[in-house]
Design a protein around this nucleic acid. Structure first.
Lengths: 124, 124, 124, 124
DNA sequence: GTGGTCTAGACCACC
DNA sequence: GTGGTCTAGACCACA
């Protein structure tokens, strides 16, 4: 279900958080769905339980998830969808600004967008 | 001339490098222009001289700058090279893919691009 | 009859105990009244029978309840005892001290008390 | 500067968070003040650095503090004061409701408030 | 079985 | 020196 990229320099627990948020945004994870247990997921991904727990704890503090001790961790989903989308668009905006500032032409960027949307989800 | 954001999670020396590259791309820094001295710039920005030196050293390694001992550091090229642009575009591609995967419409993204390019450099 | 909140961080069996004590204090549960059976209550609340049994067992240890094997569990006292009230007042004291230490005015606190006592039990 | 209570069942890192928030609310810690380093504080309190780091990280996620890697952790203080006060009053309200529900008289509670405010800060 | 807390200690990038 | 990340493994309360 989750894919970690060791080459990526973003921390493992952040990668996990982001993937969970993406699944929520996509509607794959719904309100009150249970996330995999800390231990099972850590074993599956070959990482330390603490790392999974950290991701879950952060998501809880951020209000996307609630944990019931000795039961599990569950999706909260209230306004999450728009939150996540807005955050992604904000990140995108920064990158677009970088491109503009480096004198990359607007046409070039539009082209890239079209191209990526057309290659559908070969790499998702 | 340079603006650093300590609360930003990107390292200070990377922020500095990027801004210098940006100024080169924009033609503000031209071939053989001299960069501020390590000492003066570090004092001006309130950061450690080592940090400035590291940024300059990296730029030299990357081939955008040459240093003349006991003289200073100077711009080598008038244009940022292909690879820097390619790297930026690669980063942009990842973000666009994220948006596509989250079912954000292609139109929305095109809109954002246009909007950002139109607001020129109010916020650069 | 009982309302549990799984998202609350206080253990389920403690929530149950407290509510039973509250009903005793309020005179809703009287001497020799029978509590629901472990099995029926656990089914009704959707929780593990062990959890209900634990709450009952604790109440028996604390002397508020007695169990007759193969008969059921019954209320022993008509009134909650001093120590439970004292414990609650102790908890309240700590919170009041916190407020005082944070420079919240005495008037503000008195106001809050009055307000809560006046809204009766809309939310109990 | 900080006092931990091992007998208290609230987690050490939560105790730390709360004390820091209290100091902010009291104005003892001000905007851009630096918190003690993770290592020095952990040594001083005799606890593991991870535990201190966890408290700091949570405060950062909650938006009360910002950390500059290799520099330190600093107070952010934006609207923090009211946030913290509101949270405290909310906690107090819950305890007052408990008392009311256990038939403790309103006079008794007012008395307790007055008494605590009068003993000044013998125990702060 | 579950999550929560904590310790001990490692390595990293950065200043 | 600083914070950030991660591992390995312990113990606890709870269901």
């Amino acid at each position: 279900m989750f894919v970690l990229n060791v080459k990526d320099d973003t921390p493992v627990y952040v990668q996990l958080q982001n993937q969970i948020l993406e699944y929520i945004a996509l509607g794959i994870l719904k309100k009150d769905d249970q996330l995999p247990s800390v231990r099972s997921l850590s074993k599956e991904l070959g990482i330390n339980p603490n790392t999974v727990a950290k991701a879950y704890a952060n998501l809880e503090i951020m209000g996307y998830v609630y944990s019931v001790p000795s039961k599990g961790v569950f999706i909260l989903e209230e306004k999450v969808q728009e939150d996540v989308v807005l955050k992604k668009l904000e990140e995108l905006s920064m990158k677009i600004k970088d491109c503009r500032n480096m004198m990359i032409s607007q046409e070039k960027v539009h082209q890239l967008v079209s191209q990526i949307y057309e290659e559908e989800k070969k790499d998702a």
